[in-house]
Write a protein that binds this DNA or RNA. Sequence first.
DNA 1: TTGTAGGCGTTATCAA
DNA 2: TTGATAACGCCTACAA
Lengths: 394, 394
Amino acid sequence: MDSYTRPWPLSRAADTLAKSVAKKRVTLAQVARAAGVSQTAASYALAGRAAEMRISPEVEARVRLAAREAGYRPNAVSRSLRTGTSQTVGFISDTVATTAFAGHLIWGALDQARERDHLLLIAETEGDPQLERELMTAMLDRGVDGLIVASMYTREIAVPPVLMEAPAVLLNAFPVGNEPIRSVVPDESEAGRSVARTLLASGHAGGICLVGASPEGHAPEGSLAAVQRLDGILSVLHDSGVEVAGSVGCADWQPAQGLEATRRLLAEVTPSALVCFNDRLAFGAYQALADAGLDVPEDVSVISFDDDPLASWIRPRLTTVALPHYELGAAAVQVLLDQLEGRLQEPDGTLVRRITMPLRVRESVRGLGSDGVAGASVGTAVELAAATRMHRPG
Amino acid sequence: MDSYTRPWPLSRAADTLAKSVAKKRVTLAQVARAAGVSQTAASYALAGRAAEMRISPEVEARVRLAAREAGYRPNAVSRSLRTGTSQTVGFISDTVATTAFAGHLIWGALDQARERDHLLLIAETEGDPQLERELMTAMLDRGVDGLIVASMYTREIAVPPVLMEAPAVLLNAFPVGNEPIRSVVPDESEAGRSVARTLLASGHAGGICLVGASPEGHAPEGSLAAVQRLDGILSVLHDSGVEVAGSVGCADWQPAQGLEATRRLLAEVTPSALVCFNDRLAFGAYQALADAGLDVPEDVSVISFDDDPLASWIRPRLTTVALPHYELGAAAVQVLLDQLEGRLQEPDGTLVRRITMPLRVRESVRGLGSDGVAGASVGTAVELAAATRMHRPG
DNA sequence: TTGTAGGCGTTATCAA
DNA sequence: TTGATAACGCCTACAA
């Protein structure tokens, strides 16, 4: 396919509505004329660089007044052509639409961009590499200052060459090669350590079992989260001389697998605590435990990862380490813009920014203080409706 | 505040990363030179207007080849400055982040925009009118071809004057005055008629009660959906000579109000069918009915609006008229671009495009065929986890 | 049939 | 201190 697309016509038929909104924009030249100065003087005055050109305060004031009165707004397209920068960032994700709460990635990015006077050009690739390239070039051609490439779950992605045309940041992803490109990811191994520490602190010395990944390496294909979470968990347990009492890996991390895996586990050992590798597995585990007549957390503690919206609805409410989607989105924009402004020189040359995954203490771990209530095995629909409303973090 | 923001500097300090990605872009002039023709010839050739300029096929081929070999991609910023059009649309919403499933509005818009070779600039106002104006001007200054202003729930919005600078479409909203601006909204009154027809068709001649809005006008402040849904319901019932057996309005449409309103209703009448004005009310109504020992749908049918993700999870699954978020978003882009291209001349001058709300037949209405299963009063967590994954239509 | 030149609105250089 | 003038990359009216 030809990358040169047919240009759109200058004048297009306009319907009545289009005509009714036609309105001329004020240009810098007009402001200058109105103020009785040269365009240069006007430009410098409005840019706050009057001193630089030794423009008299009186003239500067006159220009400012003229600009305000005329309702002058600089043409960003023109400025972009001239300066090569557009105060616009491209945000390309694979499939944020799939999971409800992951939309927070975008809201975090949106807020942070606005805070720094940038706008976001957003698109979705739906996992299609061809479409991904097209969208990247479409954005690059429109002069975005940088690109954020987001993945729904942490993984390695092949960085298309076109991405190296502009500064870019990978969100929730690492480059598959060793391209010099920054990544913003959740700190999964710290989360793993946090989980292990939490369990130890609440008195679980033995009987800790793993659901979702096992030290033998069974886990979803290409899931970086799996290995890092596991790594964090094992390192803390090892340091405390605690052995894992049992584990079963899952190829997919859905409730059905959690149910199945926990059943298998219970057939072999009697765990004191279950570490589920994500909340959806935990939902299944809850059911398996209930089926076995085991109480959470009295008989078995459950701790998990992600903080799915349902984690605070299910009873007992699930103690879990949250995926900070909002913060991740915000950090990606922040890293990109900092890099753009040249103030990002890690002396050690590290390209990865890890965002802390906060522990949400609820009632599924025995002996852990919590503000909530324990009790019924399932929340009511009314409570659920409340839980599934999405709220933006502070 | 001064609307003229300090221009960003031409050259900015670049860190090692920024430097490593520096790469010159190919210009049309370079392509022309490489092909040994004038820039004009190159431009016309690549635009597919060779015939117009009577450029020889041989030259045209040479230009195309040169462009391809050089990897030429036209600079959209420059083109935008020249032509005044940018193949970019602005999408401004108040708070799409709040409700999970409403993100579909954006995905619909995204898909439709891509289909027509446009990119979307997205922003959120969080209900702040000042921020709204700023975002609109920021987008307008960047030369968007048009603007879509979306509301999370259908309502009237004050159209700021700046919005009239470019073609715009209101999504889920009407202009509060009579500005000549198009709207894309769900067809609420048809949905109301659909609900009433459904009830009549399933044999509910009498005992139909309303929860959420009453003919006396009790409903959430400024809710257009309330009056239009009510209007549709009443018109069909009236045509069939059926009277509403009871109704209770609610100031807010949350489960708690649904519970409370249904309780009050049950104290006075014994309904045969409940029309809840949205699903969240219905969740509360379910509970009130259960508390009163009434079975759904055997004793009382329940029908509702919105198709909240939970509607298909709660038992019996709720029959409801869906808000077609994806289609609404797609239609908004479609209407805007059609208008831009001048092919949108309704002879009757109507400015409102109503999108059909499809009925989702499930098990909460007695005597209506359905593919699902009736039974338990609540789904399992495993089923719920599945229900709350968002899937894109079509 | 092809090339020249002007302009979109801005910023920046340089001479006055 | 200020005012021409060039340049960003593209499109197009007009001249050759």
